[in-house]
């Protein structure tokens, strides 16, 4: 299996820690003009509301999504910085061309619980983007 392009690899290692998060990000990226609620995402991806809600809120904290407060919370794909835009684009390209490699790399990330345990010992709160 060919290696993933460096940009995609770096983006995954830094921002994408679970398959759920990958799918949620790609879903919103495919339709950037649309505003998504957690229920809509859960329904579309056939995941639990809790999982969708948690991943949307984490992606938002990582500056990859925008959120608006209306009757519900509405999320849209909106990377705040150029390197995030490029990274997300590289990820989407890699997913289209080397899907198995992307899935494998994401799946090999240490589970969320373990990372949350380690990150708990950061005394000053910062953006835990490797989370």
């Amino acid at each position: 299996m060919a290696d993933l392009p460096e940009e995609a690899r770096k983006f995954i290692d830094r921002y994408i820690d679970s398959l759920e998060k990958l799918e949620v990000l790609l879903l919103l990226q495919r339709s950037p003009e649309r505003q998504w609620t957690a229920s809509a995402v859960a329904s579309e991806l056939q995941i639990s509301f809790g999982t969708a809600d948690r991943q949307l809120s984490k992606l938002c904290a990582q500056n990859l999504l925008d959120v608006k407060l209306g009757q519900d919370l509405f999320y849209s794909f909106s990377p705040h910085l150029p390197h995030l835009q490029e990274g997300a684009r590289a990820l989407a390209r890699a997913y289209a061309q080397q899907r198995l490699a992307v899935l494998k790399r994401v799946a090999q990330r240490p589970p969320e619980a373990i990372r949350d345990f380690a990150n708990a010992f950061h005394i000053t709160k910062k953006d835990d983007s490797d989370g």
Binding site: A113, I114, F117, A120, F121
Partner: peptide, 21 residues
């Protein structure tokens, strides 16, 4: 100190492991 840091993490992430530890 460990208990406080882990509890703080649990309140933020709701990860079970941080609560148990």
């Amino acid at each position: 100190a460990c208990a406080v840091l882990l509890l703080r993490s649990y309140l933020r992430t709701r990860t079970g492991l941080t609560l148990w530890s």
